[in-house]
Nucleic acid binder design. Structure first.
Length: 99
DNA sequence: CGTAGGGCGAAGC
DNA sequence: TGCTTCGCCCTAC
């Protein structure tokens, strides 16, 4: 199975209102330092509607990038119940989903 | 098949 | 505490 498929699968396990990080997601699919790959895959995301790529943030809790604009990403996250402070998630660790 | 690059990360200044 | 640099793995070209 391709690495990207695993990533999508894992990402789908993240419930609304929760987020994960690029690094954690990478580890979840057996990639030690695959953070960049995850980002790459998200960007190339063939199922943008199915896969909630906006629930993936950086390890420090900042929003990070988004193929359709980080603003959109922030908005969606806040709509899911997350509190965003400027570009960071206030209670990020609290809402962080662990596999 | 080789090279560049990425929605990052951790360490260094 | 905030910015810069280097490194990492995988995919796409």
């Amino acid at each position: 199975m391709k690495i990207e498929e695993k990533i999508y699968r894992k990402l789908l396990e993240v419930p609304s209102g929760h987020v994960t990080t690029y690094g954690d997601l990478a580890k979840a699919v057996n990639l030690k330092n695959g953070q960049r790959v995850v980002g790459q895959i998200m960007k190339k995301n063939p199922f943008p509607v199915i896969v909630p790529c906006h629930r993936v943030v950086k390890s420090d809790g900042t929003i990070g990038g988004y193929a359709y604009g980080s603003e959109r990403k922030k908005h969606m996250l806040s709509k899911e119940g997350l509190k965003i402070n400027n570009d960071k998630i206030s209670d990020f660790k609290k809402n962080l989903f662990r596999f």
